[in-house]
Design a protein around this nucleic acid. Structure first.
Lengths: 167, 167
DNA sequence: GTGTACTGTCTTGACATCGAGATATCTCTC
DNA sequence: GAGAGATATCTCGATGTCAAGACAGTACAC
């Protein structure tokens, strides 16, 4: 390990080794970095969305609808599974997005328990603008890695995710 | 790309390509996986800590103190920088940890604005137990990758984190 | 058809976080 | 040594989330 490539996690691992030499703290080298990187990504995303007057949670819901393709319409249940939040949270989110004029709610004609949520014109335009902006920023974040390294990294991460996606 | 190695993110990327063929969505292959993996890790950690009657936020604070070494004492300011939360949050956390008997607060003898927070015996025992349990679980999560792949993954992540740690 | 279990959505109350600002103290410059 | 700015911590109000449960409607076995 070269001395000039130390980051916060290297320091954290060194501290643990000094305090708990009995434990194998190697897993932190990978998993702490994943958590920390995710935290930084959240902040970067927040900044990107702010320029489009969107909160991250708004973006989450809008992109799920956008990705679904025309007519950009999904049920709350589908949305909460796509975004990994609870039903109470999703109800609240849809309420506020509807209030903001970004989505619309209508009764499901095929299931009277159900509701269908769809993007408005405004919502569609807003999410498209925010998404391409986000991609531009993410492209920059990855500029430290060449295309081959990016593919390699993606493949390694996919291996780690496999057990979770299975469930 | 082999057909049998698709995960949620591959599906997500495929959906975007269909809807927005004009955009380069490759960055998602890496960064979406980082975010998703972090979310799953949070859940796994929560489960691990529950067996030791600790919340993730409690663990965060206690490990920072534990890592500092004897006498396991740091200022709130140092703690909030280590855990990436705001000062209001840290005050609240310390209040509750003190109430639970896991940490102790005392005035800093060298700076009358300051406070020093230290682990109690109970806090030390609790965090040590939870930490070795966590490492055992994280070791399992990484069992899909050989030692070389783990080192490779750690190195690639370090490269991505570098710009953030610099700031 | 009737009853039972399941599903989809919403309501409610508790809670951890954040952001902005208040207060007290320290530090540095002149 | 006085004043300006920086630093350390805490307070307060707003907010987004979750967990548990309520309620309406559906599906399936018999």
């Amino acid at each position: 390990m070269t001395e000039d490539a130390r980051d916060e996690v290297d320091r954290l691992v060194a501290a643990w080794r000094a305090e708990r030499p009995d434990l194998d703290v190697e897993p932190l080298q990978v998993l702490s970095r994943v958590s920390r990187l995710a935290k930084h990504l959240d902040r970067a995303r927040r900044a990107a969305f702010a320029e489009h007057d969107l909160e991250p949670w708004e973006f989450d819901v809008l992109t799920a609808l956008r990705r679904a393709g025309r007519p950009y319409e999904l049920s709350p249940g589908t949305l909460l599974r796509a975004t990994l939040v609870t039903s109470g949270t999703m109800t609240n989110r849809i309420d506020r997005l509807a209030q903001a004029g970004l989505v619309r709610r209508r009764p499901d004609p095929e299931d009277r328990r159900g509701v269908l949520v769809s993007l408005t014109e405004t919502g569609l335009a807003r999410v498209d603008a925010a998404f391409s902006d986000l991609l531009r920023r993410e492209h920059n974040l990855l500029s430290g890695l060449g295309p081959d390294d990016q593919r390699l990294l993606a493949a390694l991460l996919r291996t780690l995710l496999a057990p979770f996606d299975a469930s």
